[in-house]
Nucleic acid binder design. Structure first.
Lengths: 132, 132
DNA sequence: CCGAATCCACCGGGATACTG
DNA sequence: CAGTATCCCGGTGGATTCGG
């Protein structure tokens, strides 16, 4: 095999082969988790209130997402058997510690949104020319 | 309203209502993008080599993911009309700038993997008791 | 070797209706 | 209010086949 000179042996010790990392990132990156974690970042909330703040989420998905986050130890749940039922959700220490990295990503998107949007329309324009 | 002491009025100026941010995060967080960006982080690669390093990805998904990343301005593509065809992929400046935030997230997962796995089995154990 | 196209199975997730 | 259960549609993504 020829060597084009661009070979780099840099070792970024990353996801590559680790399934669990992958699973966790899948969870973190799924459609609603980030939104929920962020919304709970400002303080504990009741189910309905949380749903109201997470525009567009169905109660089915909210329940499911909360269960997953609870299972992963990021969210706690406290049910009080009043009538009608009262359930509060909040972030655990683990969940809180995720806010930072999440924020980093969101900040990056925020800073680069313009460039991305521009790249997209530029790309789409070229496609038109090709397929005109 | 009673003050339970955990109320926080912190304003995290986040995704909440912004669709575009959401779109971009969806892209960044989709099943393969992160893996591809990370793999290209070590240097440009040819299609086949990239596929080999991204264990499990089908060529269909690799093509699709690369197109998306190219459209978003994160990846460049250079086709050389040799026989057989040679196509190289690499990260643009924008793509490279994403490595940092991505790394932050991956590092977080790495540091907290143990705790999450533990939380999961603990949670699953309790479910067994309930449903016996 | 690179990739487009087709076919198809699976499941994420919305709408709705029903329990406690 | 806080879920659970059911139905069902569209998108995701794998396998395979074809073209350049």
């Amino acid at each position: 095999m020829d060597n084009t000179g661009t070979e780099r042996t840099t070792e970024l010790p990353l996801l590559e082969d680790c399934m669990i990392t992958r699973q966790i990132l899948d969870r973190v990156g799924d459609k609603w988790s980030m939104l929920i974690v962020v919304n709970l970042g400002a303080g504990q909330l009741r189910f309905k209130e949380l749903q109201r703040r997470s525009s567009g989420i169905s109660q089915r998905m909210l329940t499911q997402t909360l269960r997953h986050l609870e299972r992963d130890g990021m969210v706690w749940r406290k049910a009080t058997p009043t009538v009608p039922l009262t359930v509060e959700y909040g972030l655990t220490t683990l969940g809180l510690s995720l806010l930072g990295p999440l924020q980093t990503l969101v900040d990056w998107v925020d800073s680069n949104r313009g460039e991305i949007v521009e790249a997209r329309s530029s790309y789409d324009g070229q496609q038109e020319n090709i397929q005109g």
